[in-house]
């Protein structure tokens, strides 16, 4: 995967970010809104593809030999990684460049909502809040979208049991 050069240059020069070849740059929560606005307004990344929160629980020391060879960093605190992905539509030459960036959000903190930049992020951010528990600050309507309003917990966190019972329906 190679990212579009103008977006990579923008990230490196203006925001001083290091581009990861596979997953895009790692952006701090403070810079996210400025980067998103620049990407949309200056580089025409107008099509919102997705936002995904991935929950990483705290990695404790792994003793067993058979777990060797993993690239999880021991001692990482509990956090979610929020991946954003955008697309640039251009009719005359019909190119579809994609660009991705990610934000690391420690548990208990929040990340700025980008639904003001791309309207399409509105429900997807609500979904990630509902299922993973990432808080998007500044979201106009941050309610649960999939689960009932009084549902306890966030089902897609790694520590949530898949067969959690719910009285009286299951």
């Amino acid at each position: 995967m190679s990212w579009p050069t103008d977006a990579a240059t923008l990230c490196q020069d203006r925001f001083g970010l290091e581009i990861c070849e596979a997953e895009g740059p790692l952006v701090s929560a403070d810079q996210a809104l400025a980067l998103a606005t620049a990407l949309k307004d200056e580089l025409d990344f107008r099509f919102f593809v997705h936002v995904v929160s991935v929950h990483y629980p705290e990695v404790e020391a792994i003793a067993a030999d058979e777990e060797k060879g993993i690239d999880a960093i021991i001692g990482t605190p509990d956090h979610t990684m929020v991946h954003y992905r955008l697309r640039r539509l251009a009719n005359p030459n019909r190119s579809t460049d994609t660009f991705a960036f990610r934000i690391k959000v420690p548990t208990g903190e929040s990340t700025p909502s980008l639904s003001g930049v791309w309207l399409g992020a509105d429900w997807q951010e609500r979904e990630q809040y509902d299922l993973v528990g990432t808080v998007f600050s500044g979201h106009p309507d941050l309610r649960r979208i999939m689960m009932p309003e009084d549902w306890p917990g966030h089902p897609l966190r790694r520590d949530y049991a898949i067969d959690t019972s719910h009285f009286p329906w299951r």
């Binding site: 299922l131 649960r144 979208i145 999939m146 089902p155 897609l156 790694r158 949530y160 898949i162």
Partner: peptide, 14 residues
Amino acid sequence: LGYLHRGVEKLCEK
């Protein structure tokens, strides 16, 4: 939404 939320993404993790 959510009246047909079947937890497919959670099932994919299993």
